[in-house]
């Protein structure tokens, strides 16, 4: 007999592992990726593959330079793949390859590994990459095309939110219907166009208990209420709340980016506050800010508040009750 192993209790573990969690997220994003390929063609596939390969390669490179062991396991744990797909879903379909690679570099090295790798990053890596690219390459990042499938050859077009900002509500309602937003026959980033694909993925994650309902519900709810109030005040000027939920990155953010475990609060109460904060900030930026879209900024701002939220929403300890005299 071999010598016995002594380990700390508990001696049995749940079968769920980190990689299972990560690959569940990957599976949940497949509908959105497929829809983007369907609408934007092979260009979309190319961007996705570039981003994923780029993220994994940069991670491996960084770990190698930093002298870490166990590179293989870390690169294959799925987190780099998730980041890669998220970057792709956040890019416009015309993004050049070099820009995708720069995005991967920023996400993995600056936003993730410099902080200490998975689990220690403060900001969502994919969003850091998106915001970095948006600020550095505003032209490339806002060159939208209409989905080629329905409107013949790809032509340059604005996203509904961009159109709302520049041309006003009347033009938007003339151009699109709510069904367009729902199915995704609109301009936008790879992963922003089709609400239905994102909903399928989100429901899968909820079903698999990878994410909990708190963040998506409170984020979309607060966005709905916030934009709804302004819509009630002036229906000619402000778009209706359904429009705000279906367009832009609201659904992508609600299900895939705000729910990133590492950069969101641990407690249920904290998640509610976190989601509500994102919803309100998104609404503020969309209605009154300089950018047409504000989900990524809103999530990043709330990311920075997570430690504070965690501190004030600690779980109530068992046994903290008054003793009856």
């Amino acid at each position: 007999m071999k010598s016995l192993v002594i380990t700390s209790s508990p001696h049995v573990r749940s079968i769920e592992r980190l990689t299972d969690v990560m690959y569940d997220v990957v599976i949940a994003m497949i509908p959105a990726v497929l829809v983007s390929i369907y609408f934007f063609g092979l260009q979309s596939l190319l961007i996705t593959v570039t981003a994923v390969v780029g993220c994994m390669a940069f991670e491996a490179l960084f770990l190698k330079i930093a002298g870490k062991t166990n590179i293989r396991a870390t690169v294959l744990d799925g987190s780099a793949i998730v980041t890669g797909i998220l970057i792709a879903l956040n890019l416009p379909p015309t993004s050049p390859i070099w820009m995708t690679l720069i995005g991967s570099l920023i996400a993995i090295i600056v936003a993730k590994q410099v902080f200490g790798g998975l689990g220690y990053n403060i900001f969502n890596p994919a969003l850091v990459a998106r915001v970095f690219l948006l600020i550095s390459f505003p032209v490339q990042m806002t060159r939208w095309v209409n989905p080629s499938f329905f409107k013949g050859d790809a032509i340059t077009a604005a996203t509904p939110l961009g159109m709302l900002k520049t041309d006003g509500l009347a033009t938007v309602s003339k151009t699109f219907s709510h069904l367009d937003f729902f199915l995704g026959t609109i301009g936008g980033s790879l992963g922003e166009v089709s609400a239905v694909a994102l909903l399928i993925g989100g429901l899968y994650l909820l079903m698999r208990k990878v994410i909990s309902w708190e963040i998506p519900v409170s984020m979309l709810g607060s966005l709905f209420i916030f934009t709804g109030i302004f819509w009630m005040l002036d229906k000619a000027r402000y778009a209706d709340p359904i429009f705000h939920i279906l367009t832009g990155g609201a659904l992508l953010g609600a299900f895939f980016m705000a729910t990133d475990m590492v950069t969101s609060p641990i407690t249920r109460k904290g998640m509610l506050i976190f989601g509500a904060g994102i919803g309100v900030l998104t609404g503020l930026i969309r209605l009154f800010g300089g950018y047409p879209e504000g989900v990524s900024f809103a999530i990043l701002i709330m990311n920075s508040l997570v430690p504070l939220i965690d501190k004030y929403t600690e779980v109530k300890k068992f046994g903290l009750v008054k003793v009856k005299a």
Binding site: L18, V21, G116, G117, L118, G119, Y120, S212, M261, V262, T263, S264, P265, I266, T267, R268, V315, K316, K317, F318, G319, L320
Partner: peptide, 15 residues
């Protein structure tokens, strides 16, 4: 590393 998934917080019977 801890990925802050919060599963332990949900599982802890002592809050």
């Amino acid at each position: 590393p801890c990925i802050r998934c919060g599963r332990c917080v949900d599982a802890c019977p002592m809050g």
